[in-house]
Write a protein that binds this DNA or RNA. Structure first.
Length: 308
RNA sequence: GGUACCAUAGCUCAGUUGGUAGAGCAACGGACUGAAAAUCCGUGUGUCCCUGGUUCAAUUCCAGGUGGUACCA
């Protein structure tokens, strides 16, 4: 079997653009399954807020990595990369094509070209550092990073506390500079990758986002959030749709304001996604109405490869 | 129909003693290798309602018009 005749079709795009529907049409057309690259649809508790595919859709086409984790479980990009790479050979035994769809650009890229090897964080150390950040401020962490890893100090965004935190955390955990792990190597994959991204007129996208939020509220997002309130410190719940409702429960703002904030933050999230996919020139862009153009494009890419 | 007030950014509004304008929110652009639906950086986007008049110069003053709001008929 020539492995290079296998194809991973990546379907990216901003939230609410219609990736789920298109991915199902593509999966039916190519008689294959769908791998979700959506860092919130992984969690089974986020039934409404993460807008996972409907039950009926899940029954129509085989989906992987939807609702397969609990919010209290730790998961990260690197594990996702490994999980997908382990899964793919099985799919490729029966199909030439697999579909990877979702809005988490970092996760998609990890599957497509890998992510450098680093150890997982140590929960105790993270706790200590978090406390230190809260009491001493970020400047203290910056200065220590400067000592332990001048290269990272010069390269990371020092205003971004997550980045400073992460770099220092790795230095302390491994005893080696964080920058030594950052090889930015592009790993070769034993399959071809066809990247497709969806987008639409911005005003239309905003309209879809706003309506989807209203629909989520009708479906009972508020109740879902109330039940998850006690897990709010979980990373999986640091998410648009939940954090705003938690603030409403805390009395920080009204229900109506919370809904407006969910809409606004979702719009901003969509913009960041577009930004991420835009900087990668490997994507070919379509609108969600162009299903036949997309299937034609995929077919064409495949025959191009075969003739080489 | 009459009187008063208002008309400036997508919205709510400030302001210019006459020298073409700025806040909040919204929006837009970007970065980003284990928290990524997170986190962070950057950007005013404008026929100052229209037409005349006064003036070196009008978004600002004057007149008329149009639209809105309130009150009186």
């Amino acid at each position: 079997m020539n492995e290079k005749q296998k194809y991973l079709v990546v379907l990216a795009g901003p939230t609410a653009v219609g990736k789920t529907d298109i991915s199902i049409e593509l999966a039916k057309h190519f008689k294959t399954g769908i791998i979700s690259a959506d860092s919130r649809q992984f969690y089974k508790e986020l039934k409404i807020g993460a807008a996972p595919p409907e039950q009926e859709q899940l029954e129509t086409v085989k989906h992987y990595f939807v609702g397969f984790k609990s919010i209290s479980e730790y998961y990260n990009v690197s594990r996702f990369e490994q999980d997908v790479l382990q899964l793919l050979p099985g799919i490729f035994e029966k199909n030439n094509i697999a579909i990877l769809t979702g809005g988490s650009g970092l996760y998609i890229d990890a599957v497509c070209h890998g992510i450098d090897d680093m150890p997982d964080h140590d929960p105790e150390l993270r706790q200590q550092l978090t406390e230190r950040m809260n009491s001493e401020g970020i400047e203290s962490l910056r200065l220590e990073l400067k000592k332990l890893d001048p290269e990272s100090y010069n390269n990371v965004d020092l205003k971004n506390k997550n980045r400073v935190f992460r770099a220092l955390e790795m230095c302390l955990l491994t005893g080696k500079p964080y920058s030594q792990f950052l090889l930015k190597s592009k790993k070769e994959r034993p399959f071809n990758i066809i990247r497709i991204a969806l987008n639409m007129d911005r005003a239309l996208l905003h309209d879809r986002i706003n309506r989807r939020v209203d629909l989520m509220m009708e479906k009972g997002l508020e109740n879902e959030a109330r039940e998850l309130y006690k897990f709010r410190s979980c990373n999986a719940l640091k998410t648009v749709g939940y954090k705003e409702l938690f603030e409403y429960f805390d009395g920080i703002h009204t229900r109506d304001v919370a809904i407006e904030l969910i809409k606004r933050n979702t719009r901003r999230y969509a913009r960041r996604q577009i930004s991420w996919f835009n900087r990668n020139n490997d994507y070919t862009w379509f609108t969600p109405g162009q299903v036949s153009e997309i299937t034609g494009f995929i077919q064409n890419e495949i025959s191009k490869e075969k003739n080489e």
